[in-house]
Design a protein around this nucleic acid. Sequence first.
DNA 1: TCTGGATGTTATTTTTATTATAACAGCATA
DNA 2: TATGCTGTTATAATAAAAATAACATCCAGA
Lengths: 147, 147
Amino acid sequence: MKYSTKLSDAVHVLAFLALHPGAALTSERIAESVQTNPAYIRQLMSALRKAGLLASVKGHPRAALAREPGGISLLDVYRAIEGDKPILHQDTHTNPDCGVGVNIQLALRDYYDEVQRAAEDRMSAITLQDIIDTYRQKAGLDHDTEV
Amino acid sequence: MKYSTKLSDAVHVLAFLALHPGAALTSERIAESVQTNPAYIRQLMSALRKAGLLASVKGHPRAALAREPGGISLLDVYRAIEGDKPILHQDTHTNPDCGVGVNIQLALRDYYDEVQRAAEDRMSAITLQDIIDTYRQKAGLDHDTEV
DNA sequence: TCTGGATGTTATTTTTATTATAACAGCATA
DNA sequence: TATGCTGTTATAATAAAAATAACATCCAGA
């Protein structure tokens, strides 16, 4: 398959909204920045809305963050976009008649859960505000400069 | 795409070897347990060999761990199999003419690196021995029972 | 009140990473 | 030196994601 870049793109969308408060950003306009198509952007926004991270009005370019950027963690976005998709994947097609295969996969699950938890703990400590702050540094802007 | 199960399958192979010391395990025999084809198993073993985790003799079913199970971490296997493939993927196709898109992705890289490090730290603390021990528990076997 | 630009959603096609499979040269033991 | 298996490469099939298309719906403004 392709690698999923939905998390990155969703953060992109949220940051874009945060950086242009009040602007009438259409899905088309955002799609230009992400270099994709408007329908994909709307799909991402739909998931973000369902997770309570974004508010919008049907038919009008009025999407806005539903919370402060400091109150939206990377884990919130991950959950909104990827649900409970794990970062490591077990092989669920091993031979059921081979006890070794079955139980090795069972054992692996415990350890994969640990890795998942470690990754999620870190993600929960990173907020959209952090990302925006770093963005401003990278872009060479003062903290309060409007884009 | 499909989700990669190579890490799981590689651990499966290593555990299988550890659980059957001295047995003449052909790639065909291992493939039965993983329920896949022998060539795929040999590909995994090739990567493990190049990483110094497994020793084998060409033409003969004599593969064996190159280290004690306690000296092989999940991160070792991940590196052997997936190289430096990250667990989260950036969108590298954003619009280069849009400074926002470019710099958001730059900012994201820093944070994705943090998440990667958290996951890898955890993986480095999990050894094949741990997985085998848990396997034995799951299988309801005493610690020293031969499979 | 009706028109139009945009959204929200679903369905289909295209792309791409992964796994499956095939093929075969080369090795080392019997 | 014949044989069974490995190590490797190349190709096909599978599956997840992104791209795209299509359309009903909303509502602000003319």
